[in-house]
Nucleic acid binder design. Structure first.
Lengths: 150, 150
DNA sequence: CTAGTATTGATAATGATTATCAATAACACT
DNA sequence: AGTGTTATTGATAATCATTATCAATACTAG
């Protein structure tokens, strides 16, 4: 049961969705930044060139992308959900360091090896012991960044 | 610089707060359940015996307890913040398994040894490399629980 | 080109959490 | 115990991210 890798366009269509202009723009915006954008962030970016696109559409498109598995939704505790395209095969798995003062988010890829090992083992054991089918996990570190310490 | 262990009452007072009836009730409710209550959960529990206590007071008291370091605030993605008293010295450090379907939350204490080791190492390295002063972390597993699989 | 239907966008609604503010109640001090 | 100061309370309204509604639009298969 090998799943074929396919583009988000293919996946979208094969799930009965339509490839619309707003969706293309939103995906493009997400794919051209390393930042963790919120719906509102995207709204403001879009609005400059395409003032017709509404905030509702942004929320709906983000939902769709999450649902077809191309987007991760995060809650970093600042009152906005934030989104990040799921790593392509050549992108690195990473986690987040979040500053409690300025909400800056830092990706880190250190210790991922060890972490993956631990996660795999934990998942396996927890699945068996608690009959939980684990789908994904969230690891986040909170603290105070360099600038905010001063 | 050893901090003295003290009760929440002491800590509250030493920070200029007052020990009021609603606060005592709310702390009692939190301390007598292993569940992860939301503000509304607490409101309904209180309301049976003390219908005078308002929801606003619940939110404020929870904030206070978080601020003086006796309560943890969690976001499990179901739209309510949830709270859990921070483990007393004899309680176990643990993390959470969250069911995406029924929102059931399971505490687990397995693999905590290994995890602590990894976390310590990660914190140390990340602090040095990114100049982030790490205060705490969130580890959560999401999946589908036994009941919801059927 | 056209019909069928997914999608859009403007608007209103929802729902958790916060702000406001006069009334109340802790508590330090007599 | 009584009192004055001031933190706290509770009823209410406000905020703000996210959702629901629904008529108009625009993909896409045929």
């Amino acid at each position: 049961m090998q799943e074929k890798y396919c583009s988000w366009e293919e996946k979208l269509k094969s799930s009965g969705g339509r490839l619309t202009t707003p969706r293309k723009i939103i995906f493009y915006i997400l794919s051209s930044t390393p930042k963790h954008l919120s719906a509102e962030d995207i709204y403001f970016i879009i609005h400059k060139k395409n003032p017709k696109v509404g905030l509702t559409t942004i929320y709906r498109t983000l939902d769709v992308l999450v649902k077809i598995g191309f987007l991760n939704k995060f809650d970093f505790g600042d009152g906005h959900s934030r989104y990040e395209l799921i790593e392509a095969p050549n992108k690195q798995h990473h986690h987040h360091l979040i500053c409690r003062k300025c909400s800056k988010i830092l990706d880190y890829t250190d210790f991922i090896e060890e972490e993956i090992k631990l996660v795999k083992a934990t998942e396996k054991a927890l699945s068996r012991k608690y009959k939980f089918e684990i789908k994904d996990h969230v690891f986040q570190f909170y603290g105070v960044c360099d600038k905010c310490k001063k």
